[in-house]
Design a binder for these strands. Structure first.
Lengths: 223, 223
DNA sequence: GGCATACTGCCAGTCACTGGCACTTTGTGG
DNA sequence: CCACAAAGTGCCAGTGACTGGCAGTATGCC
């Protein structure tokens, strides 16, 4: 649920803050590596904290669960996405706006994020418990984004059905686009790139009008 | 993830099966009652199984987690929904088809289901852990429904973006509609009724075209 | 350098969840 | 009616995630 601040301000912080940031990062990196190598279930928290050289108690001051540290990279994305939606003024169709915010958010992430994210997604794909946690995080984001849009547009989502549906659709597009992106790299050792991810997600956003009309009669095989 | 068979066949089963069904039901009912009265976190599994008069070991032969038994009523709905989608042939727009399947599924559930479902949703609303579990269950259902539609329509969801988006939209409508329905009864002791639930969800389904165009310019306050 | 504050580690505990084995109950065939 | 196999259940002794409390240590501020 909590993510690193953006990359450019890293070194201008007081020593204590830099240390915390570093611990946070070491934990996430170690976790990702160990979970990928030894499996999420078979790697115990004790193993992890020993390797990362912190105590169990400290671990829980940084991450609220074993699941959360595993998907830390994804958490960064959600933070950035929410921040971008909060930052920009809405012009034009809301759905297109959310599509563009996603692209901006991804572009603003640190250099090595793409690789960590791809690894995270592969991990999630192999583990049901992480899948559940992932679904929960997306749901949280959706609640958060709906609240942001309510403020910005001055609509109450309880009165206007469309507002909540539009954020549901946005997250659906994000989920679906990323899934396709991950699939591209499955079994290949290649590292993904951010622009391809953005392209996949954008395509999913833009496919909404067509999806509404999908029916067995009008079915063309290729779509 | 597992639900009771439909109501009409209950008594025609061998003794052993009826006993199992009864245990399953006792566990779900007891859990719902105890969690509502004493809180989900503060009620331990030991408390629950003592009251339900089964051993811990047996509990886990019926439900895979404390969370699952708490949302058993919702599990029944997902089972029924998936079964309905599997049963019926798709005619006309897929989204409308999924909307109608939902209505049929709800109508096919047992008499007291509505009340249990409403109680379940209130419980979920108060507990983050249950919210996460709920999100995971919806995600599972979505994967399952996508697979069903792939078979029925002969499309590969990896090739045709629209197929997966349509099931994302269906589940979004279901989520949103039920949320509104639950909100109606919040704080009131009244018990909800199934037709109102169906009406809310149907309205959400039908609001999709409008949601696509939602923009700050074309905003009418009422929607 | 001294002090308040924040961060960390250790300890002991709770609780969800699991494998293994012995026991009981149910359905079945002589 | 009585075995006998199969299915269901309970007990026990674990493992592992997570938490509260307290004492020790480091950092930032004067």
């Amino acid at each position: 649920m909590i993510a690193e601040p953006s990359r450019n301000t890293e070194s201008a912080l007081p020593l204590r803050e830099r240390k915390k940031l570093r611990t946070r990062r070491v934990l996430a990196d170690t976790a990702l590596r160990m979970f990928l190598e030894g499996g999420f279930d078979r790697t115990t928290l004790d193993d992890l904290v020993d390797t990362a050289e912190v105590s169990v108690r400290t671990f829980f001051r940084y991450y609220s669960s074993k699941e959360e540290v595993a998907v830390a990279a994804e958490g960064e994305l959600w933070e950035a996405y929410a921040a971008e939606v909060e930052r920009l003024r809405v012009t034009g169709p809301v759905l297109s706006h959310l599509r563009d915010c996603y692209a901006d958010a991804v572009r603003g992430l640190s250099e090595d994020w793409t690789e960590r994210y791809l690894a995270t997604r592969k991990l999630v794909a192999h583990n049901p418990a992480l899948g559940v946690h992932h679904a929960g995080a997306v749901q949280d984001l959706q609640v958060r984004m709906t609240a942001l849009l309510e403020d910005k547009l001055g609509i109450d989502s309880r009165e206007d059905v469309r507002l909540r549906l539009v954020s549901e659709m946005a997250l659906a597009a994000v989920r679906y686009g990323s899934m396709n992106w991950v699939r591209t790299y499955r079994h290949s050792g290649r590292t993904g790139d951010a622009e391809t991810l953005i392209a996949e997600v954008t395509a999913a956003f833009d496919a909404f009008p067509g999806a509404l009309e999908l029916s067995p009669d009008t079915l063309t095989r290729s779509g």
